[in-house]
Amino acid sequence: MKFGVVVFPGSNCDLDAYHLVKDVLGEQVDYIWHQEESVAGFDCIVLPGGFSYGDYLRCGAIARFSPVMKSVVSFAGGGGLVLGICNGFQVLLEAGLLPGALYRNINLQFRCLFTHLKVENLQTPFTVGLEAGRLLKIPIAHGEGNYYADPDTLRRMEKSGQIVFRYATANGEVTDTANPNGSLANIAGVCNEMKNVLGMMPHPERAGEAALGSEDGRLIFKSILKSWEGSR
């Protein structure tokens, strides 16, 4: 399986995603420059974290007009796997590949800390390898991860299993104190209706090795591998 990590001007977690796939998982991976017009040859596209175009205007608003995004949109339309992490999640929302929006954290501060995620849907390509009820310990690092969707959209998403991760306490309870940024219904990650596009604020690529404090992020990538192999 071959992963592609998109590099926008201002991406800064591209290296980390690349490192996890290549050095930790031992899978194939290449960078994709934002001016590329094709993503042919890749099986999963990762939009990494960072500050594409400085996050000026709005996070992800300018990156989504990069040449590469046209092909990412059609890749996703054809069922291709797309994972947007942090800034990548913001780009996916701006590009209309996922519903809702992300804006300023409710306490107005950038926050970098480990969070616990409750997995709400095990039937996506990104979560299919996870044990039911197992919390994921994965860090966040963002200033604009406060998720919003209007009530109708939210209802629709809940119904079709598009809420994938919610912030929870270490005991797995979804409470206000576990919510690090004010996100609606503690939402940390969502997918599209087809389930092949996932956006999440927490950084699984930062939780892939014991030395970094958690290996849970690797499980998401393992799921991707599993579902890809199953689909062949």
């Binding site: 608003a61 809702g100 929006a101 919003y148």
Partner: peptide, 8 residues
């Protein structure tokens, strides 16, 4: 298209 995000 660009200057605003109509969702919010």
């Amino acid at each position: 298209r660009l200057l605003t995000n109509p969702v919010i």
